[in-house]
Nucleic acid binder design. Structure first.
Lengths: 228, 228
DNA sequence: GCGCCACTTGAACAATCGTTCAAGATTTTT
DNA sequence: AAAAATCTTGAACGATTGTTCAAGTGGCGC
């Protein structure tokens, strides 16, 4: 009679079971592709239970973000603060890049279905359907602005356009790896694999860091802004 | 003087009308989000006509790729050949990067709903649903391998992993811009806009070119070792 | 004991999905 | 002009979608 989870309310275990299954199915099939019944089947519960616990499909979707998002936010914040204390400029650039990349790839490695959440996140960013659009704006825009400001501090002579494009380039490169579903391994014949989180993060960080540090401003100087 | 559609069979005009509407709806809503009825409404034709002309929803989807894909392939090929003839190494690196980026952004600017196709393409690459998966493998893998080989030629001392990760970083950065639906403009306060194809391409090319040229191999030389 | 409570269950709901069909309209061929 | 092939149309099909509902479960305070 005595159950292992005595301290928590009995519903919590099934709630987590549903959440975990949802993470897996959403990550594999996307928001539209995932169905309540597939999630219910994988969680081994009746469909109605999901609506009871999470209200609706988007409610369940939001719950996934609410679970894993704060950790990323905090780690990025810490990463940026750490970068600010670094006296050496070259290392500081690298630390800012890592503040963006590492927390995301770290989540993939740490959490059981972190890769699924990574896919969900990247898909949400790229999904034109309005469903969860607010999610991203509310959750990630603040830390994104901090990242952009950090880049601007590193390169005081850059225009705002250059700073912003630098951030977007970094973000896109990261998303491309997060969202990969086997093509990288296929194209490389196994020499590169997005499931190898450490190696993936290191390679991307390396290129992006170099890209920032050695960016040739002459190429984009004549844009809209004149510089002295 | 004669009617514009004199030479072609009469069905072609409606076929193109459907194709154009489909491009728009697919680009805006994604494959799952788009419905045959929404496409039919936008094209101002009955739903059944779509099935008559294209067989099925995926048939229509494939037709979109069949229409715009060869041009990109050809332009990338020409871009790589052009790079091969460039004697200056630094410029050659830039030309290889441009061979990847420019045709895609050029399509966005040239074609009426090129941006929609760009979104479709990026979404197809990132979509885990198996529907159109084969599309990408059949259509873009060959040119991707050529791009990877071109990078390997530029940097003979790099490992295959480094070469592949370099390509994937570039690809991801490009996709990130292609798939953007307003967040870049929002975050930058208008200083950067993915609808400004020329500026977007230029900025991304600039960073990626620098990233390749100045990549610090010490960071990825050893698998687990990261000390200088 | 009883009643209250959060939780669980299977069945059913209306809506929407892609697709099919038979019939009408139009063009092309004979 | 007659016949054949092609294109267009509105209505309907079965399947699947997210959600709701009424009934049922077991535990805890009284």
């Amino acid at each position: 009679m005595a159950q292992p989870e005595r301290l928590e309310k009995q519903g919590d275990s099934t709630k987590e079971k549903i959440l975990s299954a949802a993470e897996s199915v959403f990550g594999k099939l996307g928001f539209d592709g995932a169905t309540m019944r597939k999630i219910a089947t994988q969680a081994d519960v009746p469909v109605a239970l999901i609506n009871y616990h999470f209200g609706s499909k988007v409610g369940l979707y939001r719950a996934i973000f609410a679970k894993s998002t704060p950790a990323i936010y905090d780690q990025r914040l810490v990463g940026l603060q750490l970068a600010r204390t670094e006296p050496d400029w070259e290392k500081r650039v690298e630390l800012v890049v890592k503040a963006l990349i590492v927390p995301m790839f770290g989540l993939r490695a740490r959490q059981s279905n972190g890769a699924d959440f990574g896919r969900i996140l990247a898909r949400e960013l790229t999904d034109p359907s309005a469903e969860g659009r607010g999610i991203f704006r509310e959750t990630f825009d603040p830390i994104a602005r901090m990242m952009i400001d950090a880049i601007a501090e590193l390169f005081p002579d850059w225009t705002r356009a250059e700073v912003n494009w630098a951030y977007q380039t970094m973000l896109g490169a990261m998303m491309g790896v997060m969202i990969d579903n086997g093509r990288i391994a296929r194209l490389s014949g196994g020499d590169a694999d997005s499931d190898d989180h450490e190696a993936a993060a290191l390679h991307v960080v390396t290129i992006l860091t170099a890209g920032l540090k050695h960016r040739d401003r002459r190429m984009t100087a004549g844009d809209t802004d004149r510089e002295a």
